[in-house]
Simulated assay, not measured.
Amino acid sequence: MTLLFVGTRQILSLMTRAAESYVFSTVPLIVMGVGISIFPTAFMPLNGYRRKIKIATEKKQNLDKLKQLYNFHYNISIKFKTDIFGNDKVEIVLKIER
């Protein structure tokens, strides 16, 4: 029990010295600043994905407008393939029929 009590005393003295030297106010601010600076790099892939989806939906809407205007049908087939080296490839075939 005495070791725990002595350890607590030492921790309290360290905390009071740290509070007097402004460690408690600067260290958390530095940690928060570093954490906030990481946010843009964390959300970059998500923003890129959302931008690509927006472009793809706009292109599909334009294709649907053309389909309605010129009275044709289309079929999209998408195949996901992996080659010998492990690279992923996407094969997209668009067939337009009148």
Rank of each mutant, 00 (worst) to 15 (best):
Leu14Asp: 04
Ile96Ser: 05
Asn75Val: 07
Leu14Met: 06
Leu29Phe: 01
Ile78Lys: 12
Ser21Gly: 10
Gly33Ser: 13
Phe43Met: 14
Val27Ser: 09
Ile11Tyr: 01
Ser37Glu: 04
Lys95Asn: 08
Asn71Val: 08
Arg9Trp: 10
Met44Cys: 08
Asp83Leu: 02
Leu12Asn: 11
Tyr70Val: 04
Lys65Leu: 15
Asp64Trp: 00
Lys89Ile: 01
Lys67Asn: 07
Ser77Ile: 07
Met1Ser: 12
Val23Ile: 11
Lys95Ser: 09
Val6Ser: 09
Gly48Cys: 04
Gly86Phe: 03
Asn71Ala: 13
Val93Gln: 10
Glu58Gln: 14
Ile30Asn: 03
Phe72Met: 11
Lys54Asn: 09
Asn47Gln: 10
Thr82Lys: 15
Phe24Trp: 03
Thr82Leu: 11
Leu63Cys: 01
Glu91Gly: 03
Ala56Phe: 00
Ser21Gln: 14
Ala19Val: 00
Lys81Ile: 10
His73Thr: 14
Ile55Phe: 09
Ser25His: 12
Lys67Pro: 00
Ser21Cys: 07
Lys54Leu: 03
Lys60Glu: 08
Thr2Trp: 08
Ser21Pro: 02
Thr82Pro: 00
Met1Phe: 06
Ser25Pro: 05
Arg50Gln: 10
Leu46Asp: 06
Lys67Thr: 09
Phe72Cys: 10
Met15His: 03
Ser21Arg: 15
Ser13Glu: 13
